[in-house]
């Protein structure tokens, strides 16, 4: 098991959390974490680990900070 930090943004926070520490297994992918949170992968716009973009297949390492955003824009 390894410990990571998960951060949620915009409406993904509704009935969930802003920031939470989680224990995950060696095999756990970002996609697994998104699924476990009950977030539809189709609604995910951006994934970042340690401030770099990442994909559903990535397996976070101990101490990683995972940020999950819905599709957003502005400017």
């Amino acid at each position: 098991m390894k410990r990571i930090t998960v951060k949620l943004f915009a409406y993904f926070r509704d009935n969930r959390f802003k920031l939470e520490e989680r224990e995950i297994s060696e095999e756990t992918t970002v996609g697994d974490i998104v699924d476990a949170l009950g977030i539809d992968r189709q609604e995910v716009g951006v994934l970042m680990v340690n401030s770099r973009h990442t994909e559903f297949v990535y397996r976070p390492a101990a101490g990683d900070v995972l940020a999950i955003f819905p599709v957003v824009g502005g400017g």
């Binding site: 943004f9 915009a10 409406y11 951006v46 955003f69 599709v71 957003v72 824009g73 502005g74």
Partner: peptide, 13 residues
């Protein structure tokens, strides 16, 4: 998302 949070949704991302 723009309707709900405005352009300021960008600060965090």
């Amino acid at each position: 998302a723009l309707g709900q949070y405005g352009t300021n949704v960008l600060v965090n991302i």
